[in-house]
Design a protein around this nucleic acid. Structure first.
Length: 471
DNA sequence: TTAGGGTTAG
């Protein structure tokens, strides 16, 4: 006796966050023919198919299977289950997370089907265009929303910060009829992600002094703590250590336990401030220690002259049955480079892909070149640069150049320096030229976004280098 | 008919 579609729908909704169970229900839906047009002829069957597909799409999105999410949409169309306004937010999110090229076709579908009036859809597009389009596109979508609510405003705050315009985020924040903790956190995050650490801390202070905080209407959450702690950790100015400690105290007084996110941020904060005992203290207090907490602890040790302990920690971590990831290997290789443990470093580098399936990235190559270079093995370091499967970037060449300087290898140093300069100038001039051109016609948002791209790409503008003559 | 939209570490 097959289950009714209603029962299967209930099961889907109940297990919407359990990928394995979803697979089972999906199989039943297929074998019972509920997803197929024609087999089920009850009057409400079309509506039911749409509902089932919407829920399946959502479940696959939750499971991180973004390709399958979009694939289900094509099935949905083929089986004449008409998509409605509930279908698109999941699809746009799937596109945003890993298949941005689907954004435009989805936008066309939305317009064609006349569902843009629904506030959820333009809000999801604000997020999508904030991540993959431009601030302008995101704002266009924001303007489409007839009834603005706090979530839509927050999405726009995020899009602004993400595209390098904290100024617009602040203007929108001022315009908001009311703000919740996400609004405050998003602005703090906007400052933080654009490198304005002092401003992020100031804004957090402003939030804490706000009357809503006292009333208990707005309370900092995990994301807020992570952002403000990371700002303290990265802000080299006076008072950031003390302020971070105050935040820690606030957390201890107001939170029941340390979550992985907050704990890891605290370890990172104390590590960057050079307070190793404090970092270790937080680490040992965290019960469910996950890979990221170990990573933060290993990097803290590695960057505070305790390379040997960092390596011991790495061994302990493996003994505990945790699987190191790419961040772990950056930390471990850094420890090896700084401690001049050449042999161990090379072994770790080999084993990362062989034993742990972690494919070396540019950062790992940078660490190995640094490891060999610091030990004076310039030929070996050069061999790595020549044989690496990626085009070496400024960080890798910079590590090699550093070693040439230490060991007085002028010939090699000149060559590397030239390549580095070429790399920097080519990129820098292109970006600066483009950026200035756009600023010239008052496309400030675009100009700002380009300059942010430069920072993201690790292309630092050489202060005295200007491309005026090119313009 | 009520499944769908916003912030987070290494």
């Amino acid at each position: 006796m097959p289950y009714s579609p209603e029962v299967l729908l209930q099961l889907l909704q109940r297990f919407i966050k359990h990928p394995n169970k979803i697979k089972q229900v999906h199989s039943l839906l297929i074998t019972d023919g509920y997803l197929l047009r024609g087999l089920n002829t009850q009057p409400h069957s079309k509506w039911m198919r749409t509902l089932l597909y919407n829920t399946l799409i959502r479940a696959h999105l939750n499971a991180g299977q973004t390709c399958k999410t979009l694939f289900l949409f094509t099935h949905m169309l083929a089986n004449q289950a008409p998509p409605n306004s509930h279908t698109f937010p999941s699809l746009i999110k799937a596109a945003a997370s890993s298949l941005p090229s689907f954004g435009r076709p989805l936008h066309t579908q939305v317009v064609k089907r006349g569902v843009l009036f629904d506030p959820f859809i333009p809000t999801t597009f604000v997020v999508f265009y904030g991540e993959h389009g431009s601030l302008r596109d995101a704002y266009k979508m924001f303007e489409e929303i007839s009834l603005l609510c706090i979530v839509a405003y927050n999405a726009m705050l995020h899009a602004s910060g993400k595209n390098g315009s904290v100024e617009s985020a602040l203007l929108i924040f001022e315009r908001m009829p009311d703000r919740d903790i996400v609004s405050w956190t998003t602005v703090i995050n906007g400052f933080w992600s654009n490198g304005y650490f002092a401003e992020a801390i100031q804004f957090f202070k402003k939030m804490m002094a706000h009357e809503n905080i006292g009333n208990g209407l707005v309370k900092p959450n995990e994301a807020t703590y992570v952002c403000v702690l990371s700002s303290c950790a990265n802000f080299a100015g006076r008072g950031s250590l003390d302020f971070g400690k105050q935040v820690h105290g606030y957390i201890l007084r107001n939170e029941v336990f340390l979550t992985v996110f907050v704990g890891t941020s605290l370890i990172d904060f104390y590590g960057k401030m050079g307070c190793l005992p404090k970092a270790m203290n937080v680490f040992t207090q965290m019960v469910p220690t996950e890979v990221c907490s170990w990573n933060a602890m290993i990097s803290s040790l590695a960057s505070n002259g305790r390379e040997k302990e960092a390596l011991d920690m790495f061994e302990n971590m493996k003994r505990e049955g945790l699987h190191p990831n790419e961040v772990t290997f950056v930390a471990v290789l850094t420890a090896c480079a700084r401690g001049k443990f050449v042999e161990t470093g090379l072994k770790v580098f080999q084993s990362m892909s062989l034993d742990f399936g972690v494919v070396p990235t540019m950062e790992h190559y940078g660490c190995v070149v640094d490891l060999l270079g610091r030990a004076g093995l310039l030929k070996e370091a050069t061999d790595i640069v020549r044989s690496m499967p990626l085009q070496p970037d400024a960080s890798v060449l910079g590590a090699l150049l550093g070693a040439c300087k230490i060991y007085g290898s002028t010939e090699l140093g000149d060559e590397v320096g030239r390549r580095l300069l070429e790399l920097n100038q080519r990129h820098c001039s292109q970006y600066v030229l483009l950026s200035n051109t756009n600023a010239g016609v008052e496309r400030w948002d675009y100009a700002a976004a380009l300059r942010k791209d430069m920072v993201d790409a690790g292309i630092l503008k050489i202060p005295a280098y200007s491309s005026v003559y090119l313009a």
